Structures are given as structure tokens and as C-alpha cells.
Amino acid sequence: MKLCIVDDHAVVRSGLMMLLNAKEDMEVIGEASEGNEAIELALRLHPDVVLMDLSMPHGKDGLTAAKELKQVLPETAILILTMHDDDEYLFRAIHAGASGYILKTAPHDELLTAIRSVAAGNAYLYPTATKRLMIEYVDRLRDGEGSSMETLSDRETEVVSLVAKGYSNKEVAEQLVISVKTVESHKANVMEKLGLKTRPELVKYAMKKGLLNFE
């Protein structure tokens, strides 16, 4: 298996390279510190698996990079390796195209199993994630939010937040420096993705997702 490691911490990349290169069936062929660099690297090297961190403050984040990478290299498996033991990150990673999600606190053997699993075309979630995924999915269906697993873009999330706070389309457009028509288009896309019909439903969604911070 040809592997690429994407993490903003050099010491993490070095440790992973030592671990993985010691395995007869694995070879680390490249490393990157942020998302843009990761995409360029993968396009050049065509790895079988990309180990992708989520939080990389000095460049493109892991979720965005994973989504873009799957569009250009659909055959490359993406395994999210992160400290975020969070349901929302888990859902967003899956819908960004990741084949697996594992925590950095996992034992080495579990990480190796996850890599081999996604390389073989299977999915891998850390042990407690599968149950949580099913519970969350059932809860969302029960609440009428079956489509809320769709990943919103950063701009769509900004629009949702401002609209839910009571800003008019014109005010949202002024704050984001875009046209009113673009705001209306984003709103329509969001409502369709989330399966929502009314503004109160949008406000309820924003509340659940923590998008009503008025700081």
C-alpha cells in the first residue's frame, strides 16, 4: 500500500512514518502539512490511502481537502485520523467522502487494521462510532431531518447562521459581501439539502448545530 500522511504536526508525521514504513505491506510515499498541499501531493503520487487530519489551522482543513480529493481521485481511500471524538465531525467526514474515521488515541494495531480495511475498499469506524452513528441517524429521521447529514459548504453555514439570527437577505448579503440573489440561492440550496420547509425549521436546525452564537 502506498500511503500519504497529512497532519500539521511534523512530530506526528514522523512517528506515523516510522510505524508504517516498518510494515512489509506499507510504504509512506509522501507527507503534507495542510489540505492544499495534500491534494497536490496526491495528484502527483496517486497513493492508495491518505491519512488525513481534520484541524490544520495554517491551510485548508481536512474535511474540505477530503471532499475535493475524492472528486479528483475517487479511487484513493481517505482515512481521517483525528483527536475529534465528535458526532458532527464524524458525519461530515463520511459525507465528504472519507472511507474511515479513527482517533489518534487508538492503539497502533487498530490504526493498522483501519488502513488495511480502507485500502481493501471497505469502511472503518472506531469501535464506539458505529453505534453512535446509528443512534444519531435514527434521531435525525425521527426529528424530520433525514437529509441533514448532507455537508453544507462554509458559505452555506454562514448564511444559515445569519438567517437564523433574524437578518434579512439584504443584511446577510451586506455582511458577507455577496449579492442578495446569491444569498437566496444559498438559502434554497440549504433548505433542499436539509429537507426543511420553513424558517422556524431552519432556526431549530441552527440551534441544534450551535450556529446561534451572537458574539
Rank of each mutant, 00 (worst) to 15 (best):
L16T: 09
M18W: 08
N21S: 09
E24M: 09
E27V: 03
E27T: 13
V28S: 10
I29N: 03
I29D: 09
I29R: 06
G30A: 15
A32Q: 10
E34C: 10
E34L: 08
N36M: 04
I39T: 02
I39K: 07
E40N: 14
L41Y: 04
L41H: 01
A42K: 00
L43D: 07
L45D: 01
L45H: 04
P47K: 05
D48Q: 13
D48L: 00
V49L: 00
V50S: 00
V50L: 01
L51G: 03
M52F: 10
M52G: 11
M52P: 05
D53A: 03
L54Y: 01
L54S: 00
S55C: 08
M56I: 11
M56W: 04
P57N: 11
H58P: 00
D61K: 01
D61N: 14
G62T: 14
G62Y: 08
L63I: 15
T64Q: 12
A65Y: 04
K67D: 02
L69Y: 02
L69V: 07
K70N: 12
K70Q: 11
L73S: 02
E75P: 03
A77G: 04
I80Y: 07
L81K: 03
M83N: 09
M83I: 10
D85W: 13
D87F: 05
D87Y: 05
D87L: 14
D87P: 02
E88Q: 11
E88L: 14
Y89W: 12
F91M: 13
F91I: 14
R92P: 01
A93D: 11
I94M: 15
H95Y: 14
A96G: 15
A98S: 13
A98Q: 07
A98F: 02
Y101R: 10
Y101L: 08
L103F: 12
K104L: 11
A106W: 02
A106P: 00
A106D: 10
P107W: 05
H108L: 04
H108A: 13
H108F: 07
E110R: 15
L112W: 05
T113Q: 15
A114I: 12
I115L: 11
R116T: 05
A119T: 04
A120H: 12
G121T: 09
G121V: 02
N122R: 15
Y124G: 01
L125W: 04
T128K: 15
T128I: 09
K131L: 12
K131H: 12
R132Q: 11
L133P: 07
I135Q: 08
E136Q: 14
Y137W: 13
D139T: 13
D139Y: 12
D139G: 04
D139C: 12
R140K: 13
R142Q: 15
D143S: 14
G144E: 11
E145Y: 10
E145H: 06
E145N: 08
G146E: 12
G146Q: 07
S147H: 14
E150F: 06
T151L: 15
T151Y: 12
L152T: 14
L152A: 13
S153H: 03
D154E: 13
E156C: 08
E156Q: 15
